[in-house]
Amino acid sequence: MAATTVTTAHAARTHLGREAGRRKPRDWVGIGLWIALLLSALAWAMPFIFMFLTSVKSKADINALSTWDLPTTFLWANYADAIDTGNLWETGANSLLIALVKVPLGLLLASGAAFALARLRFRHHKVVLGLFVVGSMVPIQVALGPLFNTMLRLDLLDSRAGLILPYLAFGIPYQVFMLYGFFKAIPDELDESARIDGASTFRVFWQICLPLARPALAALFILDFVATWNEYAMATTLLQSQSNWTIPLAVQSFSSQHATDYGSLNAFIIMSAVPVLIVYLMFQRYFVQGAFAGAVKG
């Protein structure tokens, strides 16, 4: 319904615009649409507003006041409590460490594979590509049982290094697929002339293909950072001791063990998402680009 209104309104506007010259007609459909969007956006933002209001309320306020009321006094102490109870600094440091090792290393590995598949098109390279991509589309829970056994056998259970290895494997398929598309779009003449000048395959990879793929790499870096920061299923399977926990494990534990501590629970949730929010706000356009590449390449 809205779909048709959009295009009608658009058509109507340009049509009128052409006929009426300078005079700007009131675009009633557009205004109605805008109001509808505003209301939906408010509804969408509501959980965040409730969450923030709860995070600064005392227990008494939470019990006595409505969810949408402002607190009698802003109780910022909830945030300090949450940092203590949820062990925010330690779990945050674990998450950050894992993400900062995993993301660049994973991208390097994925670019290598994508380069080999896209630029050195050996026989059946598409089958290999297919094998890589399948992994990004099968639910990871299928692998969790055996993955646990594998890590047990390697004696890497409950360690941050032990989590990074499967995380690397987990991010590779999607990145290989994306970068494959990107590398393939580089004109052949470019590395051909480099080769004629005597450049080795490695130099073609390192000095020609990688720099050209910088926008794709940036987008993947951001997407992968968020995905790694947020990953829960593998972390809960492979990590046990609290000192190794990542942020999602801390959130889940907080929400099940201190579930009645609503103020600090919500404070903790807000703080746990700060890094990804910062990343989102700083690199917004890359999210769109990343999705864009996905939509175009299929």
Binding site: G112, L117, H125, P146, A169
Partner: peptide, 29 residues
């Protein structure tokens, strides 16, 4: 054949990690 040999160093580390920590556990299920 030449391109395949040239591709190996770029492909093998990634393929090993992916195969051992993702593909193999899926099939091992």
């Amino acid at each position: 054949r030449n391109t395949f040999i040239a591709a190996l160093p770029y492909l093998v580390p990634t393929a090993l990690l992916y195969g051992y920590f993702l593909l193999y556990p899926m099939l091992d299920s």
